[in-house]
């Protein structure tokens, strides 16, 4: 037997061994890149279920297989500290009450709750724009952004979420935090505008401490989340549209040192109602399950 022939035999043997190893290594997830979490039949079944219960799907669903993990967070004390320093430099005086610390300047009162929630109350309100009620959403958002930047109230990763408008002319601008491209819905900043004036800014901002890749798991599909939601809510009296189904992180607000936040599917109904479905368990997330 010459060397060339021996090499050919070894090539064939190793190619076979590699096929064998590859099969065992990748088979359970084989085709993972092309695999979909939601088949066409499942999508149709979910749409039918929604229709039967007076909901309709008005959003594109993420049909790929998604995995996620827990995100450890703590209250964003650095941001809060910088902000308070700014107010102190503006001449704020400080007082303590039972569960809050209050900073008072000539224009605003800043109330810090023990869980990290911060409320900036303007009394009187700060004019956003004359006839703000008549401006379109894009213009209003630009004005709000400019105000937040000017007042050092722009935490890292802030992203506009949606706007609420009441019949009385009250407007609330909701923002959340982005970590990379994943929303942290538990991190919130709200700006309340009434009669053209900014009356209140409410901030509950979080500091992402770490992600826990060791606990990465495949999440339930978006259709499974919708099925669970309809099962929980039951039929709707008026027809409601599902505008958005998006994966992010959400938990209730805790008066805690730090905590883990699970991935959720956020389902938006009629542009304003939000439901958070735990993407691991399929349960609807509640604010707090521990009794006081």
């Amino acid at each position: 037997m010459n060397l060339g022939r021996a090499k050919s035999i070894l090539i064939i043997a190793f190619a076979g061994l590699n096929l064998f190893l590859g099969y065992h290594l990748f088979w359970p997830d084989f085709g993972r890149l092309t695999k979909v979490a939601v088949t066409a039949e499942e999508l149709r079944a979910t749409e039918a279920l929604l229709e039967d219960n007076n909901y309709f799907l008005d959003a594109a669903l993420d049909r790929s297989v998604r995995a996620s993990d827990f995100l450890t967070v703590s209250p964003a004390l650095d941001f809060q500290g910088r902000l308070l320093q700014y107010f102190i430099e503006k001449g704020a005086w400080v007082s303590d009450s039972e569960n809050t610390t209050n900073f008072q300047t000539e224009r605003e009162t800043i109330i810090i709750h023990s869980n990290g929630l911060m409320r900036v109350v303007y009394n009187p309100g700060v004019l956003l724009a004359e006839n703000a009620i008549n401006l379109d959403e894009r213009e209003l958002r630009a004005l709000i952004k400019a105000f937040l930047e000017n007042e050092k109230l722009m935490p890292e990763g802030i992203t506009f979420d949606y706007m609420e408008r009441s019949e009385e002319g009250r407007m609330i601008f909701h923002h959340y935090q982005l970590l990379g491209n994943i929303p942290i819905y538990a991190s919130q900043l709200k700006v309340v505008v009434e009669s053209d004036h900014i009356e209140l800014i409410e901030i509950f901002w979080l500091e992402p401490v770490e992600r826990i890749p060791a606990r990465e798991m495949e999440v339930i599909s978006a259709t499974q989340a919708l099925n669970n939601l309809v099962h929980e809510l039951g039929p709707s009296f008026d027809q409601q549209g599902i505008d958005q189904v998006e994966l992010g992180y959400f938990s209730g607000e805790y008066d805690a040192e730090k905590w883990e936040v699970p991935p959720v599917w956020r389902v938006t109904l009629d542009g304003k109602k939000h439901y958070y479905i735990n993407a691991f368990t399929g349960n609807i997330e509640q604010d707090s399950v521990i009794l006081d």
């Binding site: 606990r215 938990s251 040192e257 699970p262």
Partner: peptide
């Protein structure tokens, strides 16, 4: 594995 931890003050 599905339970997450909250560390209270």
């Amino acid at each position: 594995n599905l339970a997450r931890i909250i560390e209270e003050k």
